[in-house]
């Protein structure tokens, strides 16, 4: 716990380009109004409303942002920073949403940030008392980015309600680290920091669960479209998800394909030496 501090002082941009180098998209982040000067990694915080997302944010950053208890409370993104194992992390609180599919303003903000901002890690805060509903969002995030850590929050409250959640079973199913925590009491915070650091550095290679489609017609259409998208945007980590959005008639994704801005979702190939 002693390692996480707010680091107001600015240092140079990420130093080395290597296998564990940051993937965040600084140009795009600047466009989204986020200053990443002095930070090594960018971490986004996603989750359903009322899952204790802001509490996790505060536990990580040490900030005392007031946490409200109603949907849509986090209207604008909150920003903070923390330091762990000699690395500086910028943390962004995304609006709480139930889904990323129905394009309300909140959902678009959250989705665009994960897609185009390419955070090094996206922490999905999941409410242990309402797992099924919360996994719905987690599965959607996994379709956009593989660099995910699931913060299984409110395990203390779940226990009070007679609910026990097996984090290892979840880790197996989701293919990403799942950290049980009670953020209000600070329980699980060191473990979450370690998991975030491991995913950011690549020490923990995630194997995210694929978005299930079930319907063979849809699966066929997605399979037909995905290679084309991959050809047009080489290295795109979420071509399958983009294909699905295009099939669903998502206009903002169609625009991003048409004008090439979807290219922002592609991480540059690792360079041996930085300029």
């Amino acid at each position: 716990m002693s390692e996480h501090l707010i680091t107001p002082e600015a240092v140079g941009a990420p130093t080395a380009h290597c296998a564990s180098c940051p993937i965040y998209n600084s140009a795009q982040l600047v466009k989204l109004g986020i200053d990443i000067t002095g930070y090594d990694y960018v971490v986004a915080l996603a989750g359903n409303p009322n899952t204790g997302k802001s509490t996790v944010f505060n536990a990580l950053t040490g900030l005392r942002q007031h946490t409200g208890n109603w949907s849509g409370k986090t209207v604008s993104r909150a920003e903070g920073g923390f330091r762990f194992r000699e690395r500086r992390y910028k943390l962004l609180d995304l609006p709480g949403t139930y889904s990323l599919l129905s394009t309300s303003t909140d959902e678009e903000v959250a989705r665009d940030f994960i897609l185009f901002g390419r955070p090094d890690v996206t922490v999905v805060v999941v409410d242990a008392t309402r797992l099924e509903r919360n996994l719905n969002l987690a599965l959607q995030v996994l379709a956009i980015t593989e660099r995910v850590v699931v913060a299984l929050n409110l395990v203390d409250e779940a226990r009070r309600h007679g609910i026990e959640v097996d984090a290892r079973s979840l880790t197996r199913d989701l293919g990403v680290p799942v950290v049980p925590m009670a953020a209000r009491r600070g329980e699980g915070v060191p473990e979450l920091l370690a998991a975030v650091a491991d995913v950011a550095s690549g020490a923990y290679p995630t194997r995210p669960r694929r978005l299930p489609l079930r319907d063979p017609e849809i699966e066929r259409a997605v399979a037909a479209l995905t290679p084309q998208i991959e050809a047009a945007f080489p290295g795109l980590p979420n071509a399958r998800w983009v294909a699905l959005r295009l099939l669903d008639g998502d206009e903002s994704i169609a625009r991003a394909v048409a004008d090439g801005t979807l290219g922002a979702a592609v991480a540059p190939p690792p360079l041996p030496v930085a300029a």
Binding site: Y98, L101, S102, R133, N136
Partner: peptide, 11 residues
């Protein structure tokens, strides 16, 4: 439309 989608997304 959007309203129906919202209900679906709410589960």
């Amino acid at each position: 439309g959007a309203e129906r989608r919202r209900l679906l997304d709410l589960g």
